[in-house]
Amino acid sequence: MDLFRFLSRFSPLQSTLAPMAAVLAMGGSPGALAAEVPLEKLSLPEGFKIEVYAEDVPNARHMARGEKGTLFVGSRRAGKVYAIVDNDGNHKADEVKVIAEGLKLPTGVAFKDGDLYVSAVTSILRLDDIESRLDNPPKPVTITNQFPDKHHGWKYIAFGPDGWLYVPIGAPCNICEEKDYANIQRLKIEGDKVVKTETWAEGVRNTVGFTWHPETNHLWFTDNGRDMLGDDTPPCELNTAPVAGKHFGYPYCHGKDVLDPAFGEGKQCSAYVPPVQELGPHVAPLGVKFYTGDQFPAEYKNQVLIAEHGSWNRSKKIGYRVTMVTLDENGNATSYKPFIDGWLQGEEAWGRPVDVLVMPDGALLVSDDKAGVIYRVTYQG
């Protein structure tokens, strides 16, 4: 169990101790300077280059891009939301502004119609007309505050092609069977209110990243497998939910065929939707995107890129990388391999990827909540 998880059990102390935990978890430094980030330790396929796009972004988590080009970044331990601005268009951040602070685990950010939506455990907040107010940000509007305050309460959020806001509700435990948890919901928002809520997928332990296929508009998501079944069991998952109402196995079945020892009795894994790709055990897959740009070679087009945050309870660490899952024309996985590796050196990790975002020029941004930076990946040819 990491320090923040331990401290967060004591909610009355959380606001006092969480910032201290954040500093300790990041090696005593609230952020990183570009000169201190050992990019030379990272390995990428031939022809690719990685640079620091923005530095000193403590606990940088999920990302969203505004219509005017502002990069918005949530955090977890820092309790802040950042706006990152490239004023001169040289593909390197000029300013990192704090546009909200004092929030509880504001991990997820989503941009729609000029407004920024932020998840804060129980609440979905909105910062109106934010790109014109970066230096004088508005007070957040509360869209809803009805989500549970339980374990896995931090949330990735994103608007789907249907205009609804998709929000996960993680399992309130490592492994348990509780109604109304372990699912993905979608919210129809009109004005300042949620007018309708639907459950899109069930049996999802804890997804902290999802996206939609650029051609089919089907939902794809990562899922973090349960702990305490050993180093190599169960796998984490990449899944797709093209329609509502599917069940993905938790807490009864993990991966394609691992029945849970506590909840799997009398169940069959064939009754649930199997993952498109089993990922490494305990790699903690978070952000996921299809590569939709034109800068990378053709074989990367519409393939899946995943930020693997890295294991915390394995005797030998694994993850701490960005991987790619290659799909065929029918959406079946044909390979799963590292795309960027090297944040883990032996058993010591100096960085932890969280999210990926494809920019209009085809570059790929990667957030790192341990180093406190945003990277920019380009193809040089």
Rank of each mutant, 00 (worst) to 15 (best):
V195E: 15
E329Y: 12
K246T: 04
D257V: 04
E347N: 15
A284Q: 02
R76L: 15
V37H: 02
T233Y: 07
T334P: 07
E215D: 15
P140T: 01
A35E: 08
F72C: 04
L286I: 06
V109E: 03
Y166T: 09
D341G: 09
T378I: 05
V167K: 08
G372T: 01
F263A: 14
D115C: 06
E36W: 04
V118G: 12
T326E: 14
P138I: 04
D88L: 02
W343I: 08
K97T: 13
D223Y: 05
P353W: 00
A54Y: 00
R76T: 15
G163D: 13
N239I: 00
S132F: 07
A158M: 12
A78I: 08
L305D: 01
R133T: 08
H282G: 03
A307K: 03
A78P: 14
L259N: 08
P297H: 04
Q268F: 08
S367W: 00
K246V: 02
D369L: 00
L327T: 09
F248T: 02
G230W: 02
T240H: 08
D56F: 02
V356H: 04
Y53C: 06
Y181E: 12
D361T: 13
N59P: 11
V283N: 11
A262Y: 13
A244E: 09
P235N: 07
L7A: 14
K289Y: 02
V23I: 09
E237R: 03
A22E: 02
Q380C: 07
V81N: 09
V52K: 00
P38G: 06
E190Y: 11
S270M: 07
A171Y: 11
V288A: 05
D128I: 08
R9T: 15
L187P: 14
L105I: 12
Q380W: 06
P338C: 07
T323C: 10
S11C: 12
T199N: 15
I175Y: 13
I84K: 00
G89R: 04
R133H: 12
